[in-house]
């Protein structure tokens, strides 16, 4: 059991991070904290992709002439560049909406916002 955890520790970290992010999204009432949770949630997936591209003894995929070299898989890393961009855009839109919510409601606590929505519809 311990061996499984230790040899694949990066996968365990990704699972823990992902669940921590999901918990933050669900449990926290503050909208900014929710966005932070969302970021952790997304970043966990980056770790997953990058760990699967890593080969033991592998090196950066830069072509070296002559030498017998083991390369890491560059594709998942390239994919994650896209995912990082997506994550940044989502965060940007989320923060912009939070800013507008703060202007309209005067608070970014979810329960207070729901309370206000209930009263003046």
């Amino acid at each position: 059991m311990i061996e499984i955890i230790l040899t694949k520790y990066n996968y365990w970290i990704y699972i823990i991070l992902m669940m921590a992010g999901l918990y933050t999204i669900v449990a926290k009432g503050n909208l900014i904290k929710k966005v932070i949770g969302l970021n952790i949630f997304q970043t966990a997936v980056l770790l997953f992709y990058v760990s699967m591209s890593k080969i033991e003894g592998g090196t950066a995929p830069i072509l070296m002439k002559g030498a017998e070299v083991l390369y890491d898989n560059p594709l998942p890393q390239v994919l994650m560049l896209t995912a990082i961009v997506v994550g940044v855009s989502v965060t940007a839109v989320a923060l912009a909406i939070i800013l507008l919510i703060y202007k309209a409601y005067g608070t970014i606590e979810e329960d207070q916002i729901l309370e206000m929505n209930k009263h003046n519809d």
Binding site: L22, I25, L31, K34, L38, F41, Q42, V45, F48, Y49, M52, L75, P76, A83, V86, V90, V93, A94, I97, I98, L100, I101, A104, Y105, I113, N117, D121
Partner: peptide
Amino acid sequence: RQSLVAGFNYLIMGTIGATFILLGIGYLY
């Protein structure tokens, strides 16, 4: 102003959904 909250909630849910899809694609790859 409720549209802001609706948009935000959709953002949270939608991103969770999309991240799950990304993770699933990762396993397939």
